[in-house]
C-alpha cells in the first residue's frame, strides 16, 4: 500500500495493481465480517453440541453444569429416551408418516406435472392455476375444519390423516416445481418416444419418470423435512400414544412434573438426527427446491 503512494513519477502500474486488489485486502472490516459470520455459524451448530453434551450427562452432572464438556459420558439418557420415554416408537411413527407422505407426494406431483407440461387438454392452464392458487391459504387457518373433516372421515389417530393432509398442503408447490422441471425437458425426447410407438402411459413410465429424477429427488428431500418436522396438525390429529410422531412425542419429555433434562435433550437429539442426516447428505437437492421457489 505504501509502495503505491510513494513513487511520484509513474502512477501507472502500481496504482492499477492496487486498484485491482480484491476488496478482501482493502476492507479493514473484513476480519470483523468473518468473526460475525463465525459467531452465527457457531450459533447454528450450538444446538447440536448442546444436545449432545447434555445427553451424555447424568442428571447430577446436569444440575452441576450444563455448559462445557460433560464430566460424565453416560448413554443412559439415550436408552431411557428411546425406551421408557417412547422416543423409539415416535420416531418409527414419524418414519411411517414421512415415507407415506413422500411416496404419495411424488406420485401426485409426477402425474400432475406430466399432465400440465407434456399433454394438451382443454382447461389445462386454468386447472394448473387452480392447483397453484391454494398456496395462498395459511394451513393454520384451517385447524378447526381439518380436525372435524378428519374426524368425520374416521381418520383421527391414523397415519392416513396426516399423510393425506401433508400431501395436499404441499401439492401446490410440488406440482409447480415438477411442472416447471418437465417443461424444460427437450421436445425431442417426447418425439422419440412417439416415433417408437410408446403410448401415453409408457411414455410416462419409461421417459418422463427417469428424466424427472433430479426433480423427484428435490421434492423427496423437501417433503421429508416438512413431514418429519410438522407440528401443528400432528398435535391435533395424532393424539393416542401409539401413533404420535416425534415432534409431538418429545413434548411429553418437557411436560413431566420433574423434568429429566439429559433424557429430554437426548430425545430432542434423536428426533433431530434423521433430518440433519438428510440435510447433510442431500443438501444440494434441497437448495434446488428453495431456488426453484425463489426464482419464478
Amino acid at each position: 500500500m505504501e509502495a503505491a503512494t510513494a513513487p511520484t513519477a509513474r502512477p501507472g502500474l502500481w496504482d492499477r495493481m492496487v486498484e485491482r486488489v480484491p476488496p478482501i485486502h482493502r476492507s479493514p472490516s473484513r476480519a470483523a465480517q468473518i468473526v460475525g459470520m463465525l459467531l452465527l455459524a457457531i450459533s447454528a451448530i450450538f444446538p447440536l453440541l448442546f444436545m449432545l453434551s447434555g445427553a451424555l450427562r447424568t442428571p447430577a452432572d446436569w444440575n452441576h453444569s450444563q455448559l462445557g464438556l460433560p464430566t460424565t459420558s453416560s448413554l443412559e439418557a439415550f436408552t431411557s429416551a428411546w425406551g421408557s420415554a417412547n422416543i423409539g416408537l415416535y420416531i418409527r411413527n414419524s418414519a411411517i408418516v414421512t415415507t407415506g407422505t413422500v411416496i404419495l407426494s411424488l406420485i401426485v406431483a409426477a402425474t400432475a406435472g406430466y399432465a400440465f407440461s407434456q399433454q394438451d387438454w382443454r382447461g389445462k392452464r386454468a386447472t394448473y392455476l387452480f392447483v397453484l392458487a391454494w398456496l395462498a391459504v395459511p394451513p393454520v387457518a384451517l385447524m378447526v375444519p381439518v380436525y372435524y373433516e378428519m374426524s368425520s372421515l374416521g381418520l383421527i389417530n391414523t397415519y392416513w390423516s396426516v399423510i393425506l393432509l401433508y400431501t395436499a398442503l404441499n401439492t401446490p408447490f410440488n406440482v409447480y416445481l415438477m411442472t416447471s422441471y418437465l417443461r424444460g425437458l427437450p421436445d425431442e425426447l417426447m418425439e422419440a418416444a412417439r416415433i417408437d410407438g410408446a403410448g401415453i402411459h409408457a411414455t410416462f413410465v419409461q421417459v418422463i419418470l427417469p428424466m424427472a429424477r433430479p426433480a423427484l429427488a428435490t421434492l423427496a428431500v423437501f417433503n421429508v423435512l416438512y413431514a418429519w418436522n410438522e407440528f401443528v396438525f400432528a398435535l391435533l390429529l395424532l393424539q393416542t400414544e401409539s401413533v404420535k410422531t416425534a415432534t409431538v412425542g418429545v413434548l411429553q419429555l418437557q411436560g413431566r412434573f420433574s423434568v429429566n433434562y439429559p433424557v429430554l435433550v437426548a430425545g430432542l437429539l434423536l428426533t433431530s438426527l434423521p433430518v440433519i442426516g438428510v440435510y447433510l447428505f442431500f443438501q444440494r437437492y434441497l437448495v434446488r427446491a428453495i431456488v426453484a421457489g425463489a426464482v419464478k
Binding site: 406420485i107 402425474t111 400432475a112 387452480f130 391459504v137 395436499a168 398442503l169 401415453i200 402411459h201
Partner: peptide, 19 residues
Amino acid sequence: SRWGYIYAAPAVALVIAFI
C-alpha cells in the same frame, strides 16, 4: 386429451378435499 384430466386428477382431488 382425455388422459390429461386423469393424470391431473389426484392433485386436483387432494387440494379440493383437504384445502
